[in-house]
């Protein structure tokens, strides 16, 4: 297979997965104003649980140790990954989403991220410690028996289908009265509460749904790459997604597609071509982290509403079938 084509294939798969992440974090921050500073932990939970429910029982050899060890057919593992991320979201939400300042949730998420990473790395029994899980089977490939490269196309189709579903769901939520309540909470929680909205319940639901997006994206990653370990789960990974969301245009689901294209894909691809400096192995990583941090600050400083800003939601009266249109006109013109 043509090398360039294969390279584009991989980029396209990641693009789809990043779109899913961005819609998830956009629902949380862009729509509902919830600060999740460890989005990647929800990705990791999805990846791990999808992994250990697809892998089959550990053989004690190279695959190491891990919990569950089920061998379930696609698409059950990603669903379980999404559910696992949702459960973590409930736990974090109970602590951080009550009527406290938004600092507190941010503090809780940062802390949970640190601790979860530490425990997953140091406890070999959960997900094989720092080595992580590997040799996760590719969805349905026991049926297709394709080579890794040819199988890539099948996987891309799966990703595209899921991304389209993700977009439809995100748009439906955003444009519904449900989305309107979330946006109201983002603007002013007290007003939303005074108008009878249960702020905690709404924030919790947005936090959960966003985390399900994270979990499913993580599950897709592990099923594509076949492996996941704590080194793929660091602070910069969360903030690549944040930068994509902010630059794409918080609150705008189309902007998320643009953000997912501009930031992670371009970013990761450009830094891939930077030369390695001998004797300084982490230098590229360091520059990448600095650039992401800078990008976050510059984005909210100079382009706070992003490349594709959130758009006004407009309404129009649909003339009723038997009612008189004249009445509607009258109302509209005041």
């Amino acid at each position: 297979m043509n090398g360039l084509l294969y390279y584009l294939l991989i980029a396209a798969v990641y693009f789809c997965i990043y779109c899913i992440y961005c819609w998830g974090i956009n629902l949380q921050f862009g729509v509902a104003g919830i600060l999740n500073f460890t989005f990647i932990t929800f990705v990791a939970v999805g990846a791990y649980f999808a992994g250990v429910t697809a892998l089959g029982a550990p053989d004690g050899g190279l695959s190491g140790q891990y919990i569950l060890g089920w061998h379930l057919p696609f698409p059950i593992p990603p669903v379980l990954g999404g559910i696992a991320a949702a459960i973590l979201a409930v736990l974090v939400g109970i602590v951080g989403l009550r009527r406290l300042r938004s600092d507190y949730l941010a503090i809780v998420t940062v802390s949970v991220g640190q601790i979860a990473w530490f425990i997953a790395g140091n406890n070999v029994h959960l997900f094989n410690g720092w080595d992580g899980i590997s040799q996760v089977p590719q969805p349905w490939n026991s049926v297709f028996h394709l080579s890794f490269t040819n199988y890539g196309w099948v996987f891309l189709v799966i990703c595209i289908v899921l991304a389209i579903i993700g977009y439809i769901v995100s748009q439906a939520l955003y444009r519904s009265p449900y989305g309107r309540v979330l946006r109201a909470i983002r603007d002013d929680e007290d007003v939303a509460a005074a108008l009878g909205k249960n702020v905690f319940a709404y924030k919790m639901s947005a936090f959960i749904i966003g985390s399900v997006f994270a979990g499913i994206g993580g599950a897709l990653t592990v099923e594509f790459v076949g492996a996941f370990n704590p080194s793929g789960w660091t602070t910069p990974e969360t903030f690549i997604i944040w930068a994509a969301m902010l630059i794409g245009g918080q609150g705008n689901n189309k902007g998320m597609i643009l953000g997912a294209f501009v930031v992670p894909v371009v970013f990761n691809e450009i830094t891939r071509f930077l030369p390695n400096i001998p004797g300084h192995p982490q230098l590229i990583d360091s520059f990448r982290g600095m650039a992401i941090g800078l990008l976050l600050i510059l984005a909210v400083r100079f382009r706070p509403s992003g490349l594709l800003p959130e758009r006004k939601t407009l309404f129009s009266l649909v003339p009723t079938v038997k009612g008189s249109e004249g009445d509607d006109r009258h109302v509209l013109q005041g």
Partner: peptide
């Protein structure tokens, strides 16, 4: 808060660089 977390990322990686 987003600004300070961006700064966190920047400074940690600058020190590492």
């Amino acid at each position: 808060l987003v600004v300070t977390i961006g700064l966190q990322l920047f400074l940690e990686n600058a020190i590492q660089a």
